[in-house]
Structures are given as C-alpha cells and as structure tokens.
Amino acid sequence: MLLNQFLLLAAVLFSVGVYGVIVRRNGVLVLMSVELILNAVNINLIAFSTFWGLGGQVFALFVIAVAAAEVGVGLAIVLLIYRNRRSVDIDQLDELKG
C-alpha cells in the first residue's frame, strides 16, 4: 500500500472538517468538525510512524488525550453560552465587532 493514500484520506477529512468549522452554526457541531480535523492529523501521524518509529503513535495518543480535554472544556463553554443566551448560535457571538 502506498503511504500517499492515507495522507490523501487525511487531507480530505481535514478539509471537510475545516468546511464544517467555517459553516456550522451550532457550537456543538463546530466542535464535532474540530474532531474531524484532529482525527485527520492522527491518521497522518500514524501513517508516518511506519517510517520513523513509534513516536508518531505516541503523539497520536497525546492528541487523543488533548482532544478529550478539548471536548470537555469546549462543551462546558458551549453549555455556559447556552445558559447565558439561550442559544448556541455562534453567529450571535459577535461582540468583537469593530
């Protein structure tokens, strides 16, 4: 098998994830898209670890752990937003407007 096919799969997942982050309104869905991006990165890490030893796998594990933390905190933030605004619509969070 070629290395490239895994990398391309990861690239597709990554781009789809970016699309989701840009397009989705619901905060929970944005977090899901971020998970797609992280998983794409993990595929890359593990694919490359066939060349350069187990470091890639170790990093993939770290990414999984960090992703778990990120989802925990991210969802807590979404919950807080919901509690304060009765909505998780990211479009409405535009107080940084210039």
Binding site: L2, L3, N4, F6, S49, T50, F51
Partner: peptide, 10 residues
C-alpha cells in the same frame, strides 16, 4: 510522498 510504499520495518 507520492511513490513511497508503506513498510512496517520501523
């Protein structure tokens, strides 16, 4: 990486 084959030697 277009032509690299997976090897599990590592």
């Amino acid at each position: 990486w277009g032509s690299d084959r997976l090897d599990f030697a590592a």
